[in-house]
């Protein structure tokens, strides 16, 4: 009998729990629904209207804004710039981050010191990084002389390495990628270092007993085991690179011939300078799709992995 009486009470308690839980979650669900998905939807709607002046005009334009966008020279340059930036930035961060993590993992004596030094740039805002690298990569000129990195190269008798950096349209956005890599590769190192530390030593020892060379251990065992880390790093860095804005603003602006322009900067310019709200919304949607292409497969993959576990 006592068991019988306890069951409805437990049911009541769990219903109460559920109600309390729902009440706790509701505000954030509502806020996310309105301020994230609501505005995503609203932006999508605006991008299909003729609102290309200050006053809203909700006349239907269909895909016209998107067609115009992909026909505009500036947006085409922006897309190429984003691809170049992403490639250079990912390769730089992953390469340097992994190399640093491997070096630190070798049991360096002053490891915490180095770890802090490599991670420090992460604490700086992109605006500061942009200003500093704008000075460092200033090309100088024959009349005013070399400055920054070019001056360093000349003193090291490496004068042939001097370049126009972000003022050279062939380099352009890659100079920005250099600054971004400087800032984020320490973070990538931290990710890899954590990954390396989580791999049990027995695996390496077993491999050594089997006569594997050190580089073989890395190639055949550690790198494959670090694959989830690499994937997370690609996702995190990739969405930063697609959305990059502040670094470009502080460091170069659109650059000569838009060689360092990015979609986010164009979006700001066309919306708030040119009053082309529908075009700005179209750029926002293109960016959303690009980021989604990168992150959604990852989210699907990780949820599935969690369910399997």
């Amino acid at each position: 009998m006592p068991g019988h009486a306890a069951r409805p009470a437990a049911r009541r308690a769990s219903a109460q729990d559920w109600a309390v839980g729902a009440a706790m979650v509701a505000p954030s669900v509502v806020a996310v629904a309105v301020f994230v998905y609501g505005f995503v939807g609203w932006t999508g709607f605006v991008s299909l209207t003729r609102w290309n002046d200050v006053l809203p005009s909700y006349a239907w334009a269909g895909w016209r804004n998107y067609v115009d966008l992909f026909q505009s020279f500036r947006f085409r340059i922006d897309i190429v710039n984003t691809a170049r930036f992403t490639a250079a930035f990912l390769a730089g961060c992953l390469g340097i981050g992994f190399a640093l993590a491997v070096l630190l993992d070798r049991g360096l004596r002053a490891e915490p010191v180095f770890r802090t030094i490599y991670l420090a740039p992460l604490a700086i805002s992109f605006i500061v990084t942009g200003v500093v690298w704008r000075w460092l990569l200033n090309p100088g000129s024959p009349q005013l002389g070399d400055v920054g990195v070019n001056l360093l190269f000349r003193h090291l008798h490496l004068g042939w390495l001097r370049a126009g950096w972000y003022t050279d349209p062939r380099i352009g956005i890659l100079a920005v990628a250099l600054a971004a890599t400087w800032q984020m590769s320490g973070y990538t190192m931290a990710l890899y270092l954590a990954g390396l530390r989580s791999i049990p030593d027995e695996l390496r020892e077993a491999a050594r007993v089997d006569g594997a060379a050190e580089w073989q251990i890395y190639r055949q065992i550690l790198v494959p085991l670090l694959q989830p880390i690499t994937l997370s790093a690609v996702i995190i860095l990739g969405h930063i690179s697609l959305k990059i804005f502040d670094l470009v603003v502080a460091m170069t602006g659109p650059g000569p011939g838009f060689s360092s322009d990015v979609p986010a900067y164009f979006m700001f310019d066309t919306t708030f300078r040119g009053n082309h709200f529908a075009q700005g919304a179209a750029i926002a949607e293109v960016l959303l799709v690009l980021v989604a292409l990168l992150t959604v497969p990852y989210l699907v993959y990780s949820t599935r992995a969690e369910v399997e576990r």
Binding site: R134, N138, P139, G140, S141, P142, Q143, L144, G164, W165, Y166, T167, G255, P256
Partner: peptide, 22 residues
């Protein structure tokens, strides 16, 4: 024009005039 024009704002470029290099 000066080769580093893309790196400078108009006032930074004005330094050329002040320094008699431009």
């Amino acid at each position: 024009v000066n080769s580093d024009h893309a790196a400078l704002t108009w006032d930074e470029a004005g330094q050329y005039i002040i320094g008699a290099k431009g």
